[in-house]
Design a protein around this nucleic acid. Structure first.
Length: 404
DNA sequence: AAGCATTGCAACCGCGATCCA
DNA sequence: TTGGATCGCGGTTGCAATGCT
């Protein structure tokens, strides 16, 4: 026997709520309080499912629901917390007063997940993981379809501002390797349609770096031993502490109370499989290491050898598929030349299973050579060739900046 | 002006967690 | 202890609105 329906569906209204329904629901809850959602519609005289009533109340009718644009500060918080928590929207919403999980989820799916794009390298290859802000990179990207409602209200959106200052525009088709485009993904079609401005590259990289630096700082907040924080000018506020508690609870098995780094310290022998992140490139000196309990899988096909931590894919989920599947799914990683691609969701994949964080200056072993990194960036053998080719747009500036 | 493509977001759905008799 | 009821969450869908051709 299947699960009983949450409510009697016959005769119930679905779809958008009317003003009258909103008023009825609001009046009833103000008079009787929240709860008893199953019986609420009947008692209130609404032809709605109890779940629908609850959703409507929580997301829109409650007095403390904050409407309007997500601010840049809120956006930062969402990005940071998503890095740490993944898609635990209700938890994230708990740290944004007046915002609902549904709103944040929608904002992420419609804005941030499209904008932030992670290019990652299988571990074991001294890999940077680079998060690129496609919206920024594609400064001249013209979107189709509706703009945000908030933006429409303001009626001042101008997606093409960056065009005006650029002399030469390269299409991404010219910039990306054929192979990369062929293995493009959801973001790929975005790239495909976006002109890439040489002039804006440096600014774009800096913007992304700044964005990621902020994320990294929060990750540092959450994961590094607290005694390291003052040296970085950081401290744990109340929200961070509670968040840390959540992380500890959810990742209990990953905590290593005996490690020399304290609450979330890294065993040094994990350095071999370390992952360098964008902030490393930026010189922030923060190294993230994989979690101890991550599974390392080996893929050796067609002569290509690489390893991948399956746990990287966000809260334990990992999908492996063909390029066409990846194309549908968003972020991606290659396992080399095997033709198989791993898809993941959003920037969180960089962090969620990277449980160990330490300032580089705490450990002299944690270093890398900029030249090697640049060499890797130039590698045209797989997806990273995308980066190489993008860098090609402004190689001199990028090289000077990278090695400075 | 019409039709199509695309987006943003409200709402729905299924399922696991929790409550409680 | 058990099982039904309820809650809460995250993923997904549907569609109105908008821009582009």
């Amino acid at each position: 026997m299947g699960r009983a329906p949450c409510c009697e569906k016959v005769g119930l209204k679905k779809g958008r709520w009317t003003t009258e329904e909103d008023e009825t629901l609001s009046k009833y809850i103000k008079a009787n309080g929240e709860g008893s959602w199953r019986s609420l519609p009947k008692n209130a005289g609404l032809k709605r499912c109890g779940k629908s009533c609850r959703l409507r109340w929580i997301n829109y009718l409650r007095a403390d629901v904050k409407r309007g644009n997500i601010t840049t500060e809120e956006e930062d918080t969402i990005i940071k917390m998503h890095n740490s928590l993944g898609t635990r929207w209700s938890l994230i919403a708990g740290h944004l007063q007046g915002r609902t999980d549904n709103e944040i989820k929608n904002y992420w799916n419609s804005h941030l997940s499209r904008r932030l794009y992670t290019i990652r390298r299988p571990i074991g290859e001294d890999p940077p993981t680079i998060v690129m802000d496609l919206a920024k990179i594609g400064g001249g990207y013209k979107r189709k379809g509706r703009t945000s409602r908030a933006a429409m209200k303001k009626n001042n959106i101008n997606m093409n501002d960056s065009n005006s200052n650029n002399n030469k525009t390269l299409s991404c088709k010219e910039v990306l390797t054929e192979k990369s485009v062929g293995k493009s993904c959801e973001s790929g079609h975005l790239i495909d349609s976006m002109p890439l401005q040489e002039e804006s590259m440096r600014n774009d990289v800096e913007l992304v770096a700044d964005l990621e630096r902020k994320s990294m700082i929060l990750d540092t907040d959450m994961r590094v031993e607290e005694r390291h924080l003052p040296a970085q000018g950081l401290s744990l506020d109340g929200g961070s502490r509670s968040l840390l508690s959540e992380i500890e609870r959810s990742e209990g098995a990953c905590l290593d109370g005996d490690s020399e780094m304290g609450i979330l310290g890294p065993p040094c022998d994990l350095l071999e499989t370390s992952m360098l992140f964008w902030d490393d490139i930026m010189g922030d000196g923060v190294l993230m290491l994989p979690s101890e309990n991550s599974v390392v899988s080996e893929e050796k096909e067609n002569g290509a050898s690489s390893s991948y931590r399956e746990g990287d894919m966000g809260l334990g989920s990992c999908t492996k598929g063909t390029s066409s599947e990846v194309r549908e799914s968003g972020d991606m990683s290659s396992n080399g030349e095997s033709g198989e691609w791993y898809s993941s969701c959003s920037t969180s994949s960089c962090f969620q299973d990277s449980h160990w964080v330490t300032p580089v200056d705490e450990d002299p072993n944690l270093s890398y050579e900029g030249e090697e990194l640049l060499s890797w960036l130039w590698d045209d053998s797989d997806i990273n060739g995308v980066v190489g080719k993008m860098v090609e747009c402004e190689l001199e500036d990028f090289s000077a900046w990278l090695l400075s």
